[in-house]
């Protein structure tokens, strides 16, 4: 298989398969999560829990100043990922071809800046897992795995855009394949927080709210 065939495969059957698994996985996980239901309240319920739910979703999105370096780096790469994924013109064309609508793109040099910030933020958070003793104890293998499958599309995308190594066709194929790996891993790993974070925060917050602790 040469690089042209690889790119054609990545843009065709590869992408169809990865999209299928991702959508299938997300829906499956959502059904699983919601079917767990709510825990029975043994004490008298003090409020509906709605306020507590909303408050927790917002509160836990606000950075904790004590760990500003780590949280800052984590914030940076999350925002960076969002900007790079959703505001780079070729990406928007991809979304438009699937969703049927589009939105304005950011100029390439801004995307470039956010790519560097994302890469920097991700490397900092990884290093922190090695250097900080408590973080090192908490880290399990899957943390490194999800870091790697998230980092690969970013670094290969950056390298493709700047034509750092080898053939553009080959790099583009590798970039798309790395995104497909991310799409497949996403619903079945810790990366599922991308669609479940609000649900879990709401659940915890509303439980606190009902018990009057929030």
């Amino acid at each position: 298989m040469n690089e042209v065939e690889l790119l054609n495969w990545a843009r065709g059957p590869g992408l169809v398969g990865a999209s299928f698994i991702m959508v299938f996985g997300i829906i499956l996980r959502l059904f699983e999560i919601f079917s767990l239901g709510k825990a029975k309240e043994y004490a008298e319920v003090r409020s509906s829990g709605a306020m507590g739910g909303i408050k927790t979703i917002i509160q836990r999105s606000i950075p904790e100043p004590r760990y500003w370096r780590y949280i800052g780096a984590a914030y940076l790469f999350h925002v960076g990922l969002f900007v790079v994924i959703f505001f780079f013109m070729p990406h928007i064309l991809m979304f438009e071809s699937v969703l049927g609508f589009s939105w304005p793109a950011l100029p390439n040099f801004i995307i470039d800046i956010f790519s560097v910030l994302t890469i920097g933020g991700m490397i900092y958070t990884l290093m922190s897992r090695f250097t900080n003793p408590s973080r090192r104890i908490m880290t399990v293998f899957s943390d490194y795995l999800v870091w790697a499958v998230t980092f690969l599309p970013v670094i290969t995308g950056y390298m493709t855009f700047h034509r750092f190594v080898g053939d553009y066709t080959c790099m583009l194929a590798i970039h798309i394949l790395s995104v497909e790996l991310l799409m497949i891993v996403l619903p079945f790993s810790k990366l599922s927080h991308s669609f479940s974070f609000a649900i879990s925060r709401w659940y915890t917050g509303s439980a606190f709210g009902k018990r009057g602790t929030l």
């Binding site: 054609n8 843009r11 065709g12 059957p13 992408l15 999209s19 990406h91 064309l93 438009e96 049927g100």
Partner: peptide
């Protein structure tokens, strides 16, 4: 950058 198949 778009797919050559129909992922949608």
């Amino acid at each position: 950058s778009t797919s050559n198949a129909e992922p949608g």
